[in-house]
Design a protein around this nucleic acid. Structure first.
Length: 632
DNA sequence: AAAAAAT
């Protein structure tokens, strides 16, 4: 069901890279994952193979992404009319309406003549130029030698407010917990990795890194509560990479069709896997370590070929990995490191059978002969069972959410009838646009409840001339990747999303999260608003609330009060009117913010014992509430 | 009730 954006005309509007002249290509074109089916392809093959529905515009998309920071992209930066900057667009001589974009850009309101056919051809050209100037080396080295490499390493850390990390509460428990470090220099990660850390401009470790890295380097299993944006990915990648370098530096490919990865990183969504893959590749630059990603929605042949070329670190979603295992193309017998990211999310999504199959029923070495790291935002019973089954004598680490219970995220709730939501959203987006400067994108992430709703809203926004795109599970993988990329780099600074984007995705600089439709579960709300105010920056979250959301009123008020937010009187009324014991909405006061506890402390070690609802570590607000359930 | 994930 292609939306307006999937047509060539729409594509032309979103394709140009942003217009902000003050931003260099290096900082505006984010590092992004190149899916297997786009790698090392002769140029002409990209469009058709890619299978996205952008028509003839397709080839350019993959290309411009593949050549980060290339001259080609710079070219389009200099000339293309960005969606935000009508003035610049016209100043660059781009017609205010072009072939194929007529109707949609006549309504005015957002910008006049932001995109055009000319722009699209520019985008395409940039792709081709990039291709020819940089080439796509046929070797696995992801970083062509000069500028592009710096571009990649520059991306993640710009503007992280490290001071905001200082106050984050951290708690550890377990036997002989290795002491935390306060600098990277205190840990022996090896020279190459240290160099990559420097390239990434990581000046000092984040709290989760300070604790998790020494724990993992000491060879201990780890169960950790930490959110994306806290530096979690590096926290489990550094020890893996350092360990591989120290104990079994990558040698020749083993040959044969079966791959024998040394480390496995499981994550719930394709986008998250792809993001981890990007990070891991940066960290293992010039180590010889090969990082391969495998997930569904992309042709398996390319992943098979990548695996055949050798893999030390495999990043995967569970479904595709099971497929590959069943085909006998991967053996887990060499696994020495296992990391499960967003474990609660994976269980929510029904992955437990696949995960258990991967970890327990294939040929992976058992706990004790491998090192296991489990990350989860909450600690319900299923996670606890998973932990006692997968981990041995582990250390428990809980890290507060960056910006939790602070005023880093300003939460607003507006009473809006369904019929008025669109016009209200329009007002917010206009206000958001007015706040942005020409050099700084003000990204807005709009959550809706259904995939249909996402399509509808995106279509409407586009018709109203808002530079919007969408991400949800009915879109093809390449559409999803393109949407995310185009959002991240500011081409379409409005992203309409279902909960596929609620967790895990680390999108820097989201200025505004709009809950166009509120979720039913307060946990989901917390995750959604967590897309803003990241890495110590401030953010704004606006929710549209009406009678349909009554059951969320009480937990929402509690949450806002904990975070010292101003709660509107009418919402208080909803909360007091709400029938008591609103089932699952009542659960999880604080676990999503400062999560959980070491349940071993409660004598519930092992199997069937239900954990008590008693709390521990009360110093951090509502810690641990998430594990008591409505069933108790 | 919806979303995500292997085909």
């Amino acid at each position: 069901m292609p939306s307006a954006w999937t047509g060539p005309a729409a594509e032309s509007a979103v394709e140009p890279v942003n217009v902000n002249s003050s931003a260099s290509p290096e900082t505006t074109v984010r590092s992004s994952y190149v899916p297997p089916h786009l790698r090392n392809k002769p140029q002409g093959a990209v469009g058709p193979v890619d299978n996205h529905s952008f028509g003839s515009g397709g080839g350019g998309l993959g290309e411009s992404r593949e050549n980060l920071g290339s001259a080609g992209v710079g070219n389009s930066l200099a000339t293309a009319g960005g969606a935000w900057g009508s003035r610049s667009a016209t100043a660059s001589g781009i017609p205010s309406s072009g072939p194929g974009s007529g109707g949609r850009f006549s309504a005015g309101g957002w910008n006049k003549g932001g995109g055009s056919g000319d722009v699209r051809s520019n985008g395409l050209r940039s792709g081709s130029n990039g291709k020819s100037s940089w080439g796509v080396g046929s070797d696995p080295d992801p970083f062509p030698k000069e500028e592009p490499r710096d571009a990649l390493f520059d991306q993640e850390n710009t503007g992280i407010n490290f001071d905001a990390y200082e106050d984050i509460p951290v708690e550890t428990s377990g036997e002989n917990v290795p002491p935390a470090v306060s600098t990277f220099a205190e840990i022996d990660l090896g020279q190459i990795l240290n160099e990559n850390i420097r390239r990434c401009k990581y000046l000092k470790p984040t709290p989760v890194q300070r604790h998790a890295i020494p724990i993992s380097l000491a060879g201990r299993d780890l169960m950790a509560c930490a959110q994306t944006g806290s530096g979690k990915t590096a926290a489990f990648c550094f020890p893996i990479i350092a360990g591989i370098m120290r104990n079994s530096p990558p040698g020749r490919p083993r040959g044969g069709r079966k791959a024998f990865p040394l480390a496995l990183i499981l994550s719930p969504t394709r986008e998250l896997s792809s993001q981890i893959h990007d990070e891991a590749k940066k960290f293992s630059f010039q180590t010889g370590i090969r990082v391969v990603v495998a997930y569904g929605g992309a042709p398996i042949q390319n992943q098979l070929r990548d695996l055949e070329r050798g893999v030390e670190i495999l990043v995967a979603t569970p479904g595709r990995l099971v497929d590959l295992l069943e085909r006998g193309r991967i053996s887990l017998s060499s696994i020495r490191y296992l990391a499960l990211d967003e474990a609660d999310r994976m269980l929510d999504m029904g992955f437990e059978p696949q995960i258990r199959k991967i970890v327990e029923q294939m040929d992976m070495p058992p706990a004790g002969r491998r090192q296991t790291m489990l990350f989860s935002a909450t600690f319900p019973r299923e996670i606890q069972r998973l932990a006692s089954d997968f981990l041995g004598n582990y250390i428990f680490l809980a890290v507060g959410r960056v910006g939790s219970s602070t005023d880093l995220i300003e939460q607003r709730v507006e009473y809006v009838l369904d019929a008025d939501k669109r016009s209200m959203l329009m007002d917010l987006l206009h206000a958001q646009k007015a706040q942005g400067t020409s050099s700084q994108h003000q990204l807005s992430l709009v959550f809706v409840e259904t995939k249909r709703g996402a399509d509808a809203l995106e279509d409407w926004l586009c018709r109203m001339d808002f530079p919007a795109t969408s991400i949800h599970g009915d879109r093809t993988q390449s559409e999803r990747e393109h949407a995310l990329r185009s959002f991240r780099n500011g081409v379409t600074p409005i992203l309409v999303a279902t909960d596929v984007a609620a967790r895990g995705l680390d999108i820097p600089h989201v200025a505004h999260v709009v809950n166009f439709d509120l979720p039913n579960d307060i946990d989901d709300y917390v995750h959604r608003i967590g897309r803003t105010g990241r890495a110590g920056k401030t953010g704004l979250a606006t929710a549209f609330f009406n009678e349909k959301d009554s059951s969320l009123a009480r937990p929402l008020v509690e949450l806002m009060q904990e975070a010292n937010q101003e709660v509107p009187g009418w919402l208080m009324n909803f909360a007091s009117r709400a029938n008591f014991g609103g089932g699952r909405n009542r659960r999880s006061g604080g676990a999503s913010r400062f999560g959980g506890r070491d349940f071993r402390k409660e004598g519930g070690r092992g199997g069937g014992d239900r954990y008590s609802s008693e709390r521990y570590g009360g110093g951090y607000g509502n810690a641990g509430a998430g594990v008591s359930s409505a069933w108790d």
